[in-house]
């Protein structure tokens, strides 16, 4: 069963003579529990595609059904609610709130979903433990290394058990060792049944993916199953 079903996705930027056509009629589907890696050179449109699939942006044309819901038709407020309840995100540069501790960062989406403080704390601690940061609940992001921050970001993304986890070049700002650890962690999460869509430009990090989609100039040019 496809959890993501996107058809004829176009995304243009600018107006008039300076329109840039970044996505040119992409069709893509992702099965529940699948781990899809999107690869391509810089400017290929892979991140833009992920923003459309993850309801962070609206395509200029096309439909995107996620878990049966056409996210293109949702209002801004409904999309925010949808992202909260259905999706998880890992950004390239960790994107943690600098004023909040690791635990509080992870708790944020849980509290927003209405979980009470004590349960959110327990769930956050479990998620932090699961990414190998046992005991670092009270550390501020600035007190953690880049790799550790990214693991907190992963903990935040998975703590609320999203239906799909999106990762936008999660290793881009990490050294090779930390990058490998993060990729391994994402692989482990996938093994627990998590649907994952990851954008990367490094082939070596796609080893755990079920399928690799290659993009070039706003189009899918190739697909490969691992």
């Amino acid at each position: 069963m496809n959890i993501i079903e996107a058809t004829n996705i176009h995304r243009t930027f600018g107006k008039g003579a300076v329109v840039t056509h970044v996505l040119k009629g992409i069709d893509i589907s992702v099965k529940a529990g699948e781990y899809v890696a999107i690869m391509g050179k810089s400017g290929a449109g892979k991140s833009t595609l992920m923003y459309q699939l993850s309801a962070l942006d609206e395509p200029t044309e096309g439909d995107i059904f996620i878990d049966g819901e056409n996210v293109v038709e949702l209002s801004e407020r409904e999309r925010t609610e949808f992202r909260l309840n259905t999706l998880g995100y890992i950004f390239q540069d960790y994107a943690l709130v600098p004023d909040l501790s690791a635990r509080e960062n992870v708790m944020m989406p849980l509290l927003m979903r209405g979980m009470n403080w004590a349960k959110a704390e327990q769930a956050a601690d479990r998620a932090i433990d699961s990414v190998g940061l046992i005991g670092k609940y009270h550390n501020l992001p600035a007190e953690l290394s880049g790799g550790e921050q990214q693991r907190v970001a992963i903990a935040r993304a998975v703590a609320s058990e999203p239906k799909i986890l999106f990762a936008d070049e999660p290793t881009a700002n990490l050294d090779s060792i930390s990058g490998k650890q993060v990729i391994d962690l994402i692989g482990e999460i996938h093994k627990r049944g998590q649907t994952i869509v990851m954008v990367t430009h490094e082939e070596e990090y796609t080893a755990d993916a079920d399928r690799i989609i290659y993009m070039e100039d706003g189009k899918i040019v190739n697909e490969k199953k691992n």
Binding site: T80, G88, M112, R113
Partner: peptide, 10 residues
Amino acid sequence: GILKGIGIER
């Protein structure tokens, strides 16, 4: 933006 991205209301 990130807070809004992960579903925190405006």
